[in-house]
Structures are given as C-alpha cells and as structure tokens.
Write a protein that binds this DNA or RNA. Structure first.
Length: 580
DNA sequence: CAGGAAGAAATTTTT
DNA sequence: TTTCTTCCTG
C-alpha cells in the first residue's frame, strides 16, 4: 500500500496521513484538494484500518459530492473498498438523519421538502400582511430575512435555549406555521431540525458520534451558522474532524456563509494539525501572480502563497471596448482566433497563431458577472457560427414567461389545479394581485371547492371589487375558449395562442427591445420543446408534455462534454477548469 | 444640473 | 461586494 500516496506532493501526503485529531487543510484554488481528501479517506481505511462505514465526507454541492464519488470509485476499482463510506451534501445527511433517527425517536413526523415554487407562493402570500408599507421588496429579500433569523435562532438552540414561537418575529412565526401545517420543511429547517434533535436527544447524538468517527468537510468556508453548529454537534468534544477550505474563495457571504467559522478553526480546536496546500497545478504562473495580487487585498484571510507548477503561459489581456455589443463581437472573433477556424473569420488576413496549441470549443469558457450579460454574447457567438451552451441556473421551464404558459397548460389539463390557477391569476392577469388571489384561495378552501369553480359560482366577497370580478370573468372566458381550441389545435399552435392572449412575447411592444427578444426566445424554445407532442390535438398532447417537463425538472441537465463554448457566471465557474 | 447619499438588486446552493 | 437607480440638495 505504500504506493497509495506516492502520487501526492509532500504537503498533500502530510494531510492524507493525519489520522487522529482535528485537521485543518488550507487549500488554495487548484491545489488538488479533492484528490488529497479522497486519498486521505483511502489511507484511513487501508492503512489506519478504520472501517469505511465510520467515515463521513461532507460537501456543499451535489457536484462536489459527485466528483468525490467518481474519484472514490476509481480507487475502489484498484482494490481499496470504500463503498461503505458516506459521501454527500450536508443537506442529504440531515435528510437521512431526520428520516431515520429522528422519526424513530418520535422527534419529527413524516415531512417533505417544500418546492421552490411553493415556498415562493407562501412568502408572497404572507409578506404583504407583515410589511404592508413595502410595495415590492423582492422575494429573495424576504427569503434572506427568514433565513437570517432562523440561523440566529439556531445559535440559541445550540446553547440549549428552548426555541419558543413567541421569541421570533411574527413574519417568521406565520411562515413556520404554514409549513408545519402541511408537513413541509425548507432547506434551513433540514439543518436546524437536525441540530435541535442532536441537542435534545443526547443519546442519539452520542450514538451518531460513535457511528461516525471521522468527519471531513469540504469548502468549510462556505458553512453558514446553522451548518457550522450542526457539524460541531456531530463532531463532539474530541473530534477527528478534517476541515478543508480556503478563505480566499469565500464568495458566498451574501447567502449567509460565515468565513469566520473557517478562520476560527484553530481557536475552536487548539490542538489542530494544520496543513497548507499551496502548490497550484491548475493555472499558469501569470494567472497565479495576478490572482495573488488581488487576493492579498482580502482582509479576512490566512496567509498563503500559491506556487505555480505550470509555466508562465499566455499574458493576460485587458480590453476595454466601447459598449456591450462591441465586446460581444470581440469575444466572438477572439474565440474564432483561438480555435483557428477560418469558417467564421473575415476572409483575407486571418491566420492561426502557430504557437498556440490546438483548441476546440469545449476548452473555452466565457465568464460574466450577471446572467443578463449572456444574451448579447450568445447572439454574437451564434452569428459567428460558434456552438455554445449557457450554464444558466434555472432551466427554460423556470423562466417566468415559460412558467406562465406552463401554468396555463396545467390548468387546461386540470381545472382543479389551484396552484397553477393562483400562479396564473397573480402573474399573468393585469389588475389582479396577491391580495385578490389570496382571498379567492381562502374562499375556495373554506367552501371546499377549487379556485376556478369559485369564480364560476359568482361568489361574492366584499373585498373583491366589481372591476376585479370583471377581470376574473374575462379570465374564465379565456380559459373556456382555450379549452375549446385545445380539442383541435396541436400543442405548438396552442402555446402560440396562449402567448398571444396573455400578451407574452411580440405583443408587448412597449417593452424595451432587449427584454422582448429574450421573451421571444424563451417562447420559441418552449414551442420547440413542445413539437414532439404536437402531432395530436393539444388536449391529448398536454399531459405528455407536462410529464416530460416534470421529468426534466427532476433530473439534472446532462451535457458535460459537449463540443461547445460554455457561457457562465463567475460564481458558477468556481472549481471548474478550462484549458484556454 | 452635477454629484452625492441612500437603497435596491444581483451573484447561488441545498431532497 | 459591486453596480445601478432614485431622490435630493446646493
């Protein structure tokens, strides 16, 4: 087994061989930290004889967990059996603990995780009641507000204070009541419930600590308060806890990550072994030098100097163009130059730089800070005939325009779908807001009928004015008209029809030119996606289309090695590698 | 009208 | 953290 660590650098090996006690690995970007982590796990099992089922490797993203599993699988095929090891996100771990341990202890009943759409709906419903003077604070603002308060309360829980519902803000209380009534947890609850459970049921907590003797946590600098407290609880007083992270890559403070947790590791665990990984295998010396200059300015950091293994490489070029259009065109021509294709370059004077290695499209990424900046670049690249893929966080089906149309399709398929009905009325019908929709839902709930049926029944509510009622009725008319059309028209035509009736796309001419074409594009994409279901009348095609969408939402988008330039945000690029 | 203060929005993960 | 918008003041 002596060759197990032979491929590691001295500091990587030092980290991998540290078996007992707290271990802090300060790992710069591109220093092979996942590799080190996995080799350490293998070492723990193969050399230190620790049963694999006693190891926990915790990540923050499924991507990181997948990468780790892949590397572990590669080692397993070389004869080291790590299959019993738990590798997963901190959320999946909590999910498991809650589903098994907590339920058997009678601490929680069965639960589901609230879907983003439902969570948004709950917040949209509650916010106006608690913040009447604020007209239109964004949803995310409220989400963050709730999350922050919950994390603050997690600290109380960790100090063994009882979490009473009186001690929290009315907004949070109302929010939690809605979730509780439906047996739902949000992602913060997943962590906090587990934390409270460990605090309250110390026997179970002790059992878990014995069951898992060695913990490793990747991206430790990204922990938020509740996650940090939970890990401390799970690690206990004499922890074999391995924290891996880099304060210089702490880019998620805005969503509650506390770099302090990473910086305080030595105070938390004074006997911690500390290993710095400073040898960078990913980037050229030029890039390392430049990034070092930027990083040095960080205030909250642990001193560390990246050492480049690669040669200097190409110089960094900084170009200032007149506007975004020029910038997009420049990027397109630059990519053309890099791959050396004559196909899209101007005719005459183009020649490939001979000393550049041959690059293909998949080796190139375009980064930007905002998703909104992608559009012009995308258009310019398309015009130049460059294949591309946009790594957007939400799929087409989560774009607001598409969601409205999908909600309409859902409603045509099943008029009893109150979620779809509410979303439609609220987002697509002018003059109807959350207030009207809330009272409608309220009414429907009390009289045991559906939202649509309530409108149909000429119900009377004092808070719904005549002019709102007129809008509601014209919506009913539209619904009936579309139901009729769905019997004959194919799905793609029906979608066009819906878009036109709801003034989505080309119809809204007063909008800014840019936002119109984005909407149009979404619409076209949606119609394209619907084409396979358009051979039959829409009424038959809709359910098939909807179930395909549901499937797509579940499964992750799989297109890793496409021969295309990748467009993504700077945040999205963390930890990725591109040759160019 | 320039220019500054103050506020809002954007960056994103998690079953 | 940074950038854009809005509103106010001299």
């Amino acid at each position: 087994m002596s060759d197990l660590l032979s491929s590691l650098s001295p500091s990587q090996r030092a980290a991998a061989q540290t078996v007992n006690g707290p271990l802090l690995i300060i790992a710069g970007a591109g220093t092979g930290k996942t590799r080190t982590l996995v080799h350490r796990l293998a070492y723990l099992v193969a050399e230190a004889r620790i049963p694999a089922e006693k190891l926990l490797a915790i990540t923050f993203t499924t991507r990181a967990a997948d990468e780790m599993r892949e590397r572990i699988a590669a080692l397993c095929s070389q004869g080291i059996d790590l299959s019993a090891l738990f590798v997963g996100t901190i959320h999946s771990l909590c999910h498991r603990i809650l589903k098994h341990e907590c339920r058997s202890a009678g601490f929680v009943s069965d639960f589901e995780i609230i879907s983003p759409a439902d969570q948004a709906a709950v917040i949209r419903n509650l916010a106006p009641r608690f913040f009447p003077e604020q007209q239109s604070l964004s949803l995310k603002k409220y989400e963050l507000m709730l999350s922050r308060e919950k994390n603050d309360r997690a600290r109380l829980a960790a100090e063994n204070h009882e979490l009473t519902s009186e001690s929290c803000s009315p907004f949070l209380r109302a929010y939690q009541e809605v979730l509780e009534r439906q047996g739902l947890l949000d992602f913060d609850d997943l962590i906090i419930k587990t934390l409270v459970f460990l605090k309250k049921f110390s026997l179970h907590a002790q059992e878990l600590r014995t069951r898992f003797s060695h913990l490793s946590v990747d991206e430790y600098q990204d922990l938020n308060t509740a996650q940090y407290l939970l890990l401390r609880e799970l690690a206990g007083a004499h922890p074999n806890l391995c924290a891996v992270g880099d304060a210089d890559q702490a880019i998620y403070a805005f969503r509650g990550a506390q770099v302090k947790n990473f910086l305080n590791f030595q105070q938390d665990f004074p006997d911690a072994t500390i290993v710095k990984l400073e040898e960078n295998f990913r980037s050229t010396r030029t890039i390392i030098a430049a990034s070092q200059q930027v990083i040095e300015k960080n205030k909250e950091r642990i001193e560390k100097k990246l050492i480049a293994v690669k040669p200097a490489g190409a110089r960094i070029e900084l170009c200032e163009l007149l506007d975004e259009r020029q910038e997009a065109r420049f990027i397109a021509s630059e990519i053309g130059r890099l791959v050396g294709g004559a196909r899209f370059e101007s005719l005459g004077h183009d020649q490939r730089d001979e000393e550049l290695p041959e690059l293909s499209f998949k080796d190139i990424a375009v980064l930007y800070r905002l998703h909104a900046q992608a559009r012009l670049i995308k258009e310019a690249l398309e015009q130049a005939g460059i294949p591309l893929q946009v790594a957007r966080d939400r799929s087409l089906y989560e774009e607001p325009d598409a969601e409205v149309i999908i909600a309409m399709l859902e409603l045509l398929h099943d008029q009893g779908n109150d979620l779809a009905a509410a979303a439609l009325l609220e987002n697509a019908i002018k003059g109807l807001g959350p207030k009207t929709v809330a009272s409608l839902k309220d009414y429907a709930g009390k009289s045991g009928t559906t939202v649509i049926e309530s409108i149909r029944q000429e119900f009377s509510l004092p808070e719904i004015t005549a002019d709102r009622r007129a809008r509601l009725h014209s919506f009913l008319g539209l619904l009936d008209e579309l139901t009729e059309k769905a019997r004959t028209l194919p799905l793609d035509q029906l979608i066009r029809e819906i878009a036109a009736k709801l003034s989505i796309g080309a119809a809204s001419a007063d909008n800014e030119e840019s936002s119109v074409s984005q909407t149009d594009e979404n619409l076209l994409d949606l119609i394209t996606a619907a084409m396979p279901f358009s051979a039959v009348p829409a009424a038959e095609g809709i359910p098939h289309f909807l179930s395909k969408i549901a499937l797509l939402r579940e499964g992750e988008q799989i297109c890793p090695q496409q021969e295309a330039v990748t467009l993504l945000t700077v945040h999205g690029a963390k930890g990725l590698e591109f040759p160019a």
